[in-house]
Design a protein around this nucleic acid. Structure first.
Lengths: 201, 201
DNA sequence: ACCTGAACACCGTTCAAGT
DNA sequence: ACCTGAACACCGTTCAAGT
């Protein structure tokens, strides 16, 4: 994407993303003007537009760095010997690391993803990769008879991700504390959903 | 909220909401200017601002009418003799009635809810009422031994709503068709989650 | 190339003036 | 009260000019 990548270039871009994140958490995406970001980053509008072509591209930069972390987190599901233990670790990580501040930024990002077609297709691509990781992890767990082999892995993977997305969405309104309270029940739900079923009536 | 409610008043407000919805579906919330809404509704800016104090208040009006439908849909869970049948009907309704256009409007609404504090607290209030309905329905189903009595009704109700929200959120990127394909697996998941458990191991 | 800051186009909202 | 449309304040972005 970027043609040149000098030390100055990456340094300035990073500084802008940091400044913008701070502003977005404090005042929201639309509550902060480009002038605000310029002030926080200590540069003029012309300079900022030299490194980012638009306000949306700044959000895209923030999304990109968050996406890497998400995919890395999910990857542990593919390498672990115990699928359920790894799944619990993922949920615990979300519960412990997600602060009110993170949720505020997540909210601003989500709102802008919903609005901008370009960001939406980037998110769709991220979702596809996340889905692939979880599907493969489920297949592996099925082969090792840890997970009910009658389940369709793609559909099941989508449900798992939908559940996590829904929990984060609701945490936006109810706060990080309520999210944390949901975690044990979520683990139980996933166990009942995925584990080998006994014959029943 | 409104002090006077003459026929002209309600009629004009309704016309504005209709015009705005059409514009938002076509161009998005930020893609449509107040001038666009004025044109679609056939009135000048001054007139529009006579009936709605701001662009946000227009979205608030749309949300209000959608919220009523949501709560009414969930209410069937409380009155039904068969909880699972009613739950399946709710899911089927969502799958059948939600068109790509509905999702587009839902997306714009969601984005703005995330952004505006005033809308967020309105959404939180709606969530609280939805939660109450589902919790009560679960309690009733437990008393009638249709649902596992060891489950915490509040936590379980939140999980059900989170799952539905997550499915709708993902449908935003993957389309209404994919949502429909998820419904059978969602029913199975909810059955495993809620039904009386046989002893195991 | 990297940077400045004034200038431009646009949009949400207001308000003096009309009926 | 209901309505008009010009005017205001603000914001994302650009560009001539500098180094």
């Amino acid at each position: 994407m970027r043609q040149r990548d000098s030390a100055l270039n990456t340094q300035r871009r990073h500084a802008i993303l940091e400044a913008a994140s701070t502003c977005f958490v404090k005042s929201g995406f639309h509550g902060t003007s480009m002038k605000d970001v310029c002030g926080a980053a200590g540069m003029s509008p012309g300079t900022l537009y030299h490194y980012f072509r638009s306000k949306t591209e700044i959000i895209a930069g923030i999304i990109e760095s968050e996406a890497d972390m998400t995919l890395e987190l999910l990857s542990s599901l593919k390498t672990t010997p115990d699928f359920f233990e790894a799944l619990h670790e993922v949920l615990d990580f979300i519960a412990s690391e997600v602060t009110e501040q993170d949720l505020a930024l997540h909210t601003e990002i989500a709102a802008e993803i919903l609005r901008q077609p370009h960001l939406r297709s980037a998110q769709a691509e991220l979702d596809r990769r996340a889905l692939e990781i979880v599907s493969e992890a489920l297949s592996k767990a099925q082969r090792e008879t840890q997970v009910d082999p009658t389940l369709d892995v793609d559909v099941t993977a989508k449900l798992i991700l939908a559940l996590i997305d829904g929990l984060l969405w609701r945490a936006t309104f109810e706060g990080a504390m309520t999210l944390r309270e949901q975690i044990p029940a979520t683990k139980q739900l996933l166990s009942r959903m995925l584990q080998l079923q006994k014959e029943r009536s």
